[in-house]
């Protein structure tokens, strides 16, 4: 077991190194910071000024911090599929290491890379709030933790699609469609039908923003919305849902990769 733990550490270390050397890491980081800058610069520039309520501003900035969740898809899309598509698996897989260890190590590396982006962004959020309001609400830390969990769940879902896809591009596009189109459409349908949507990852991950003050942080969004639209996700339930997505999809990915043949 110790031996397998050492191997897990090795996979995580070198896969993490790979992420840090890829351009996409810096592109995602730069885009994420740019999103925060837009919020910080556009509000005073358009004459709106910063909101008087620190929680509203924190929620606005934290919306930008959900950007890494999308970045997670780009980081993880090729994690498994790339080994088969790019033939690097011919070097990696014929080693005395369990494939589940490889999957878990790659997951940890990918999550660590995305966590760096999340931490950097919340650094921007915290510094901005401190600069504008002279205080940082404790909810920012909660939002960051939830953002990390949401990213972890998205990485797990991406790993699942990566383990069943022939190519990295296919895995990335399929995951993006699943999370940002399919789940959103299902969520809208359930909302219109007045049905519960707590079990959807897209809804559960809204908790990253709603933790501050529910959807009420954003004045004006109520008009024209169906009843129930303003019902913000419960933190406890959302955490459970995100953990469930993370565990189930990661386990599925490991099981599929273990059986997948390198033909």
């Amino acid at each position: 077991m110790t031996d397998e733990r050492d191997k897990l550490r090795a996979v995580a270390k070198y896969e993490f190194m790979k992420h840090l050397r890829r351009k996409r890491f810096y592109v995602v980081l730069a885009l994420a910071i740019a999103v925060e800058m837009i919020v910080l610069i556009a509000l005073p520039l358009l004459g709106a000024g910063y909101p008087s309520n620190v929680m509203t501003m924190a929620a606005l900035l934290s919306m930008g911090a959900t950007f890494p969740t999308m970045g997670a898809v780009f980081f993880a899309g090729d994690a498994i599929a790339g080994e088969f598509e790019g033939k690097t698996g011919y070097v990696l897989f014929p080693n005395p290491v369990r494939r589940s260890t490889i999957v878990l190590g790659k997951y940890l590396a990918c999550f660590s890379a995305i966590a760096l982006v999340v931490l950097a962004l919340y650094g921007v959020v915290g510094a901005s709030l401190l600069w504008i309001y002279r205080r940082v609400p404790v909810e920012v830390a909660g939002s960051m933790a939830l953002c990390l969990l949401a990213s972890g769940a998205v990485v797990a879902v991406t790993f699942f699609f990566s383990s069943i896809s022939r190519g990295a591009m296919g895995a990335t596009v399929t995951t993006l469609i699943f999370i940002f189109v399919v789940l959103s459409v299902v969520e809208s349908v359930l909302l219109m039908a007045g049905q519960p949507r707590w079990f959807l990852l897209s809804y559960a991950s809204d908790v990253v923003v709603t933790i501050y003050n529910g959807y009420g942080a954003f004045a004006g969004v109520r008009e024209g919305m169906p009843s129930g639209a303003m019902r913000s996700p419960d933190v406890g339930t959302s955490v459970a849902v995100m953990v469930a997505y993370l565990v189930v999809f990661l386990a599925l990915s490991a099981a599929i990769t273990r059986r997948r043949e390198m033909t």
């Binding site: 031996d3 050492d6 191997k7 550490r9 090795a10 996979v11 270390k13 070198y14 190194m17 790979k18 050397r21 890829r22 790019g86 033939k87 690097t88 011919y90 070097v91 990696l92 014929p94 080693n95 005395p96 290491v97």
Partner: peptide, 30 residues
């Protein structure tokens, strides 16, 4: 654990150096 293998024309991670790749694979081999 008893085998060293070359299969078809393997590819390596372009972002790593030979030293790093060998270090990675060596650790996987204990």
């Amino acid at each position: 654990s008893h085998v060293g293998a070359i299969i078809e024309t393997p590819e390596f991670y372009p972002y790593l150096t030979p030293e790093e790749v060998l270090s990675y694979l060596g650790r996987l081999r204990g």
